Amino acid sequence: MNKNLIALLCVAFLTGCNDDASVSSTVNVGGSSESKHSVSETALFLPGGAGIDFGVKPVTDKVQEESPGKSFRYVIYTIPGSVDEIDGSLKEILTADGYTAQYLSPVPKIYKQWVTYSKPEGVSILVRYQETIKEGFSKNTTIVFKWAE
């Protein structure tokens, strides 16, 4: 596993990546309803209190109603690295915050890996990974986060 990627995600998770000094507040990973979240354009705050900053803006961040009264939030990032490296780092961060990971069967030719992260209090997040190889054999991973609103 790429130790630099783990270190980057851990640092980003703990401090956030925001160059604008005028924007400041704290990220409370404990999930308190009184927490203030950084207004970083690159940070993702998950239900259950965890915050992750990939250092890039999400490609998509939307709420979609899939059936009457059932809305889901979709946040999609594309970042450099392989699925295994990124999933390993993400799993390490989320399990440290109390989430458990359940690996599901992937959908061939669409998603390389599906994982459901959940907490005992009923918070559940679906994470899907798709890997692409660009010119020069550099790998990028598209990560789709989905949870009920």
Rank of each mutant, 00 (worst) to 15 (best):
50 A>L: 15
119 K>R: 14
100 T>G: 00
85 E>C: 10
26 T>L: 04
10 C>T: 06
124 S>G: 06
100 T>P: 00
145 F>T: 00
143 I>W: 09
17 C>A: 06
123 V>G: 02
2 N>R: 08
52 I>Y: 11
107 V>D: 05
103 Y>L: 07
80 P>E: 03
84 D>G: 06
90 L>F: 09
69 G>L: 12
24 S>C: 01
33 S>L: 13
84 D>S: 10
131 E>I: 05
127 V>I: 02
24 S>M: 01
115 V>Q: 03
106 P>Y: 06
119 K>F: 00
86 I>R: 06
46 L>M: 15
81 G>I: 14
92 E>N: 12
20 D>H: 05
102 Q>V: 02
76 I>T: 14
128 R>H: 11
149 E>Y: 12
120 P>F: 07
92 E>Q: 10
64 Q>E: 15
149 E>G: 09
26 T>D: 02
12 A>M: 05
86 I>L: 15
41 E>Q: 15
58 P>T: 13
76 I>W: 09
16 G>F: 04
144 V>P: 02
55 G>P: 15
37 H>G: 00
133 I>M: 08
54 F>A: 13
109 K>Y: 13
145 F>M: 04
125 I>T: 03
100 T>A: 04
55 G>M: 13
88 G>A: 10
34 E>Y: 04
95 T>K: 08
138 S>C: 07
58 P>W: 10
31 G>T: 04
46 L>H: 13
116 T>G: 01
103 Y>Q: 06
94 L>I: 03
146 K>H: 03
91 K>P: 02
111 Y>S: 10
102 Q>N: 06
11 V>I: 06
22 S>A: 01
23 V>K: 01
143 I>H: 00
50 A>Y: 12
133 I>H: 05
106 P>Q: 06
31 G>P: 04
95 T>H: 09
53 D>I: 15
109 K>V: 14
100 T>K: 03
49 G>F: 09
14 L>E: 02
123 V>I: 11
44 L>T: 15
101 A>E: 13
86 I>Q: 11
31 G>D: 02
81 G>S: 15
92 E>Y: 09
147 W>N: 09
15 T>Y: 01
44 L>E: 11
132 T>Q: 08
15 T>F: 01
93 I>L: 14
22 S>R: 08
37 H>S: 06
93 I>P: 14
48 G>K: 13
67 S>W: 01
27 V>E: 00
68 P>H: 10
73 R>D: 11
112 K>G: 07
106 P>V: 03
59 V>T: 08
144 V>S: 07
41 E>T: 14
21 A>Q: 09
132 T>D: 12
90 L>K: 06
105 S>A: 13
140 N>P: 09
99 Y>S: 00
34 E>F: 06
143 I>D: 04
7 A>V: 05
52 I>V: 15
104 L>P: 01
85 E>K: 07
13 F>T: 02
89 S>H: 11
85 E>P: 01
